[in-house]
Amino acid sequence: MVLREPDVAPRPSTSRPRLLRPGPLVAGLALVAVLVTVRLLAPADEQVIAADAARDAITLAISVLIESLPFVFLGILLAIVVQLWVPERVILRLLPRTPWLRRATVSVLGVVLPVCECGNVPLARGLMVKGLTVGESMTFLAAAPILNPVTIITTYQAFGWEDGILVARIAGGFAIANLLGWVFSRHPSPSELLTTRFQRTCAYEAHSDEHGGRMTRALGLFARETSAMLPALFVGAAIAGLIQVVVSRDLLVTLGSNPLWSVLALMALAFVIAICSNVDAFFILAFGSTFLPGAIVAFLVFGAIIDVKMLSLLRTTFSTRTLAQLTALVALCALALGLGVNLLG
């Protein structure tokens, strides 16, 4: 998060440019060959792990991982394009200058940059390096998974106009995202909301205009973003897999018909299950008859912004304290929204 002077004259580089070296490239190819060989030679017997629960936890974790990985790569690629190829004025100058109007515009950016929520984290990091404020990036992270064409279409396919679920999701997501952006923009020193590692990345990027060619810099960014995002994604997927096996679905589902408990139960389910906002409507449709509409809205809004996998990914960028406040705020808003829909409906 650094505001740069516009159009600074190119600064002569003081450090050595990055070089492409053949040795490590061969090492990289050799590593790939080793990994492929291990995969091909591994035993094909299903019963290596006897316990059902352990095998299921691994299967579920791999499933979350394989589902999210392409979106994370897409997010990283978009972030690289935004940072290296899109001129600053296109993104930041086109945004209105009035803070609230600016946040409102940022919250519909998901329409033109439709990445899933896990892909949004690297993209938001790229946008912050480019100069988006912390509050605005919060608004983007919260709004983009909900206010994007894919999510809106799947939610419509699943629920139509029934019970106001679609309208409540869109309007609620927009309101919560802008509230978040406003609250966090009031922080006297917004950079304290970030991890020290990410602060340094931003400071470093601001002075790195002249490190070699664009392709080399793109690869450098790719290395940096994968080393930040992938450990978080792998840990998040592992936790999501484990928690599925430990938490009983039956318990959450039996809470379904109470106006208050059903909202809380579905928020808990959303947190635990960590599925993409693009398809969560189909998933929760499966429980449509069990739960009240308010609970479904809370699931669709809360789960799109916060879940175990997302917290793990967001931790690469925001401090633990910030994430605790963020989670509490989103949870309260989603709860209020859900209860409101239940009362009015």
């Binding site: 990055r18 070296r21 490590p24 990289g28 392409p70 690869l219 450098g220 790719f222 994968t226």
Partner: peptide, 20 residues
């Protein structure tokens, strides 16, 4: 996306780390 990611990851190996 896996194939694109793979090509980039292998290419990144060839990248000498910047001194700073």
């Amino acid at each position: 996306m896996a194939v694109i990611g793979g090509v980039l990851a292998v290419a990144t190996f060839a990248l000498a780390p910047a001194p700073d």
